[in-house]
């Protein structure tokens, strides 16, 4: 009984969202507001159960970890936004979060986005036993990375044999990579659509077994 109600609701909301493909309409608007409202309520409960309760409420009020009090007070400063005369206080937790985010991401980005990428490019073009396609692969990796970097070099105009030709090859390499990514992702999206259509035809309409 409840399962059937769930299937009918899921089918209704699937079709309501798909009705946007025709045009914006009251049914879509209803589904949109329901999904936004429910998700908001769900995340409030989720945040309490998965963040506030295990990381603040229980350690502080049950286990007595008093060191969490300054952090709780800092977090509470966000609420000062609702009081115009002291709303400036909410900038303190924002500044702390901003600074922490920048500080933490700087060395991480340097390692993962710069050093590791540079290391992965320092590869031999040819080694004993390499087939022709291995050599081609090495050349594409080295030349592709070099020319893509030339494209993102902002201090020189894209003119001349090095910066002009290099950036042109670079943007070609980038676009070929994007094309491959596009095709790969579209395939994934099509499988999602197939999944939804399968749900409608199998679980809801029972047209296929």
């Amino acid at each position: 009984m409840y399962e059937q109600i769930g299937i009918w609701l899921a089918a209704f909301f699937t079709l309501a969202i798909y009705s946007f493909l025709y045009k914006e309409n009251p049914v879509y608007r209803f589904a949109e507001h329901v999904v936004v409202g429910i998700s908001l309520g769900y995340f409030m409960v989720y945040t309490y159960n998965n963040v506030l309760e295990p990381r603040l409420v229980r350690p502080l009020f049950v286990e007595g970890q008093l060191g969490l009090i300054p952090i709780m007070l800092l977090g509470l400063l966000y609420i000062t936004r609702f009081f115009r005369s002291v709303s400036w206080l909410s900038r303190y937790p924002i500044a702390v979060v901003f600074g922490m985010a920048m500080g933490l991401s700087f060395p991480r980005t340097m390692l993962s986005m710069v050093l590791r990428q540079a290391e992965a490019t320092v590869i031999p073009i040819y080694r004993t036993g390499y087939a022709w396609h291995d050599v081609l692969g090495s050349v594409i990796i080295i030349v592709g990375t070099l020319t893509a970097l030339i494209y993102f070099f902002f201090s020189k105009p894209h003119k001349g044999w090095f910066f002009g030709t290099g950036s042109k090859i670079g943007i070609w390499i980038i676009m070929i990579a994007f094309g491959a990514t596009f095709g790969f992702t579209v395939m994934g999206r099509i499988s999602l659509l197939i999944g939804r259509v399968q749900f409608l035809l199998t679980d809801w309409l029972h047209l296929i077994e």
């Binding site: 490019t121 073009i125 040819y126 070099l146």
Partner: peptide, 16 residues
């Protein structure tokens, strides 16, 4: 970084 990669290309050819 480009210099390192360019160096890889030149040294790779020299290796061969």
């Amino acid at each position: 970084v480009m210099l390192i990669i360019f160096g890889t290309l030149v040294l790779g050819i020299l290796d061969v």
